[in-house]
């Protein structure tokens, strides 16, 4: 019994370490991509006057949908590359939830598998649930 408890807590430490690494890696990769896109953006458009940010127009479809962002990324459009980095940054905590789900399942912690699933469904519903009004 005592032995069991010991290994369980060891596993938990590993899980926590991996969660930490995942978060850090996500932020680092996202910022490198944002930096690359940003440099391209400045190189191409740095000399142009600043857009009218005091008027809210909203972004076009190439920067607000998955398809649009991927198209922009693969065609090397600077704003597309930045927006892809932005997307990765937003995905990092969501990936963390997915990872926690697996970790709780491995620990056979049914209660927390359930709780994690609730959190995940809320986020997925807000992503895909047609909340665009």
């Amino acid at each position: 019994m005592k032995n069991n408890k010991h290994t369980a807590s060891l596993e938990e430490k590993d899980v926590e370490k991996t969660v930490g690494m995942l978060l850090r890696a996500g932020v680092i990769i996202a910022s490198i991509i944002v930096l690359i896109g940003g440099s391209l953006y400045l190189f191409n458009f740095g000399g142009l006057p600043r857009p009218d940010y005091h008027l809210f127009k909203g972004e076009g479809s190439s920067l607000i949908t998955f398809d649009g962002i991927f198209m922009g990324l693969f065609s090397g459009k600077p704003t597309g590359v930045i927006q892809f980095g932005v997307l990765l940054l937003i995905l990092t905590p969501i990936l963390r939830i997915l990872f926690s789900l697996v970790a709780f399942a491995v620990e056979r912690d049914r209660l927390y598998v359930f709780i994690t699933l609730i959190v995940l469904s809320i986020i997925l519903a807000s992503t895909f649930g047609g909340l665009k009004i």
């Binding site: 944002v34 930096l35 896109g37 940003g38 953006y41 857009p51 940010y53 127009k57 909203g58 972004e59 076009g60 920067l63 607000i64 949908t65 600077p78 704003t79 930045i82 927006q83 980095g85 932005v86 997307l87 937003i90 995905l91 990092t92 905590p93 969501i94 809320i122 986020i123 807000s126 992503t127 909340l131 665009k132």
Partner: peptide
């Protein structure tokens, strides 16, 4: 992240400011 996915789709995230 839960609200960011909504705002991204609504066009609140401008690459020129985000970067």
């Amino acid at each position: 992240a839960a609200s960011a996915v909504v705002y991204l789709q609504r066009g609140y995230m401008d690459p020129g400011i985000a970067f």
